[in-house]
Design a binder for these strands. Structure first.
Lengths: 212, 212
DNA sequence: CCATGCAGTTAACAACTGTTCTCTGTAATT
DNA sequence: AATTACAGAGAACAGTTGTTAACTGCATGG
């Protein structure tokens, strides 16, 4: 069912993506609410008016960026949480996967962390919705685990939210470590991983004794 | 040692505070990186150039706002964490205190949540430093608790950070509940409190079984 | 009581912003 | 082959921005 786009539509998507990429770059040093439409088009090398062919406003572009940054992440979440092995192994693998993701898409991570509580309402809402979806997916995976026997849906969901928030905080800390001076980078990254691992371990302990 | 300010200095501090208040108000609907100096002075009813008598830039004003929003919070933290009673009582009281604080200073809470990962580096750093101080204070209080016997300093600190982050997330959720439509407000607030309580309880459980 | 310091004002600057309208070239459709 | 649709260019708009300079009035310290 994948219809090959005509030259026309292909070129359009290309500039659209260029706008998204340029915006993401500019957002390393500012927030979305101060991102100007002209600023973005200038970075791409296109006329300011061309912007309107793709987005109604920078807020609209922000929502598209949320889609790009989080939309493609769902399969990864599912496979990560449902990975086999004892809980210690699972924690190590999860932390490692977060670190790898931050390494691969630092601008995406920064954008989500920055705009989650940022000044643009539609973007905040889009992020909140995506994270709620993540929490639901994590909940479903948690439910499959024998440890979750006897848990109510509500309790599973509150634990899922705890995990999701914790993963976001960890990702943001990894990012800060990356932004620091090169020589401290490795040590800071290791430190973040070590702390995050123990926090996850502690939460896991609480999980095991929840029904006592 | 409190020297009564002259008429001159008193008036200066008055306008300075007016600038801070106006900025905090304007920041409800945008981020600091898009806050204009003229915008602030206009809201106060003062000439744009007067701004420079108090702050070098809006980033500088942001740092001052961090001080105002978090600086006065330290005594509260100490007394809260060190409050007596069993852990269930302590959790209830902590959540209630957070809710009360968000109710009393919503703009401050919003500002911290928004700019913690925001686009202005000096402000991010100021918030990070203050939160690190909080974590240290929480650590000190945790250390006094008999439950912490045998814990390493590192483990106490990682738990303290977990608590601080959790408190911030909870505060932000309370704020979102406040911002919603009036009729849902009470129920949403109750729901946030309920989830946060159980998350704290689960972390507390993990804490008790940490040395197993 | 007079001289100084300084919070706040006024005016002007070049540079920037979002948005509208009109136009052009060319891929897509008929 | 002729027509249409539409991504992008270009120019112009009124309004905004941060920053500088020179000023005014008044509380303060000698």
């Amino acid at each position: 069912m994948s219809h090959t786009l005509g030259i026309r539509q292909a070129q359009k998507q290309k500039t659209r993506q260029a706008l998204l990429d340029a915006a993401l770059g500019l957002l390393e040093e500012q927030s979305l609410s101060s991102l100007g439409l002209r600023e973005v088009t200038r970075a791409v090398g296109v006329a300011p008016t061309a912007f309107y062919r793709h987005f109604r406003s920078t807020a609209d572009l922000g929502v598209a960026l949320v889609e790009e940054a989080l939309g493609s992440l769902h399969p990864m979440i599912r496979t990560t949480v449902s990975t086999t092995g004892d809980s210690e192994e699972r924690i190590t693998r999860t932390i490692e996967l977060i670190a790898r993701h931050v390494d691969g898409y630092p601008a995406h991570v920064r954008f989500i962390a920055r705009e989650r509580h940022g000044g643009v309402q539609p973007v905040r809402e889009a992020i909140r919705d995506q994270l709620a979806r993540f929490a639901l997916e994590v909940k479903d995976e948690l439910a499959k685990d024998p440890v979750s026997a006897g848990w109510t849906e509500d309790d599973l969901l509150m634990l899922a939210h705890l995990y999701v928030d914790q993963m976001l905080i960890t990702a943001s800390l990894f990012l800060e470590a990356l932004e620091g001076p090169e020589q401290e980078r490795e040590e800071r990254t290791r430190h973040v991983a070590q702390v995050a691992t123990r926090q996850m371990r502690l939460i896991g302990l609480g999980r095991h004794h929840w029904l006592d």
